[in-house]
Design a protein around this nucleic acid. Structure first.
Lengths: 227, 227
DNA sequence: GCCAGAATCTGACGGCGTGTCAGGGATTGT
DNA sequence: ACAATCCCTGACACGCCGTCAGATTCTGGC
């Protein structure tokens, strides 16, 4: 049938994009693709994951289901791209850890910055993050990869701070820096995900923020924060 | 059409069970219902949540889709019952907190017991728990209720320990006991959920266990655990 | 054991979403 | 203006959903 075009140049973005039939999409095609991605993101926030239908995304984007399949194999494939974009935006969290001061008297403030950034980021991307979490947990390697890309930088950055504290003998060496950092990230991620649930049963976010920052600060420096 | 039977006696279980047409199911009916529930549980563990179909559950249970709808409105309704059963089984986690000793020198051991019980419980029920998490996060009140029933007892039990430590001035009173307990439970829950993910990228469960127990122990008693 | 009546199950059907073509518009370069 | 290329969609076969009416199985009284 249709032979693969020998022209494989992509002078456009970073990746080699392909439509279902092997074409390299042009300007109009890429615009449609972006529109579909945006609508996927919207559907994800307004609809239960189980009920996100190709036909709805297409309708919302003012196009037909067949067009959707030109660019994505299924809803999951589109979601994957949306998740990838989100992970890109998460890189700034790392900077807070590496640039901030973890010295005595300043660690708590840095920890609070980190907590705030976490809560804000999770709030902005909650709908995508919950799907990433679910799919990762179900063993989907592609989503797991994204989740790792997002969290690994943060975890290793925190682990570095732990190692520093271990050099100063403020944290026992039996503690594994990566495990310690991972546990802290887990705490941040889960609390951020269920922020609203906590509020719902009477716990104020301000108080959560304080408890979290306290654990982060102590966990990575070994110094008990001042009251 | 069919009037509701005036016989409302239920001398059987705790709840008033009704089939789709208002009947009170007898022995055979209840057995079928249980079979469908078991198969729902199985499908949930072997299939991505999005892809759990009524037709598959029915086939697995050796019956027809129409029979499924006799007992449940949809897959979600059956999942809800499965989740409720799971929450019942989680009550034993509370006992570890209330019965265990949080005295200096013993708190770390109690914390380790709690962590182990958490990891084991989450491992047993991972597939149901991830759906509960997703649905809760999507704003489904029924699943949220179950989640609360499961976690609230644990959280309040931990909060009580925190309050005790505050009386002894080992934890500053600016800390909100429920917030502190909630954060610790979040840490336990999230780490337990993604246990395999951690292993996958080189962090041993034994080390996670240690870091978590350390945070729990310090968080509720204010005492830095011995190395 | 037999039968009426209740309890339970299921075949069949209309409706809707999926995923795939082939073919028809739209856009671009010349 | 006219190809050549790019992009979109109508139409279709398939599969699952959710609901009946009616068939099948069970139960208690005789």
């Amino acid at each position: 049938m249709s032979e693969i075009s020998p022209r494989r140049r992509v002078d456009d973005h970073n990746e080699e994009l392909r439509a279902a039939d092997g074409r390299v999409p042009g300007r109009r095609g890429r615009a449609t693709r972006q529109r579909l991605l945006a609508c996927t993101r919207d559907m994800l926030t307004s609809t239960s994951y189980r009920d996100v239908k190709v036909i709805d995304i297409a309708r919302e984007a003012g196009t037909s289901p067949a067009t959707f399949y030109q660019y994505f194999a299924d809803v999951e494939a589109a979601t994957l791209v949306v998740a990838e974009e989100m992970a890109q935006h998460g890189q700034h969290l790392r900077v807070i850890i590496t640039e901030g001061s973890w010295a005595e008297g300043e660690a708590m403030a840095t920890a609070l910055d980190l907590v705030d950034a976490f809560l804000a980021f999770w709030d902005d991307h909650r709908s995508v993050l919950r799907v990433v979490d679910l799919a990762t947990d179900e063993g989907d390697g592609r989503f797991q990869k994204i989740r790792v890309r997002l969290l690994n930088d943060i975890t290793t950055a925190l682990a570095d701070v732990v190692r520093e504290a271990q050099k100063g003998h403020r944290i026992p060496t039996v503690i594994d820096p990566m495990a310690e950092a991972g546990v802290l990230v887990a705490m941040l991620a889960h609390t951020a995900t269920h922020q609203y649930g906590f509020e719902f049963w009477g716990i104020r976010t301000a108080k959560l923020r304080q408890s979290m920052a306290r654990h982060v600060s102590w966990g990575v420096t070994g110094i008990i924060p001042p009251d």
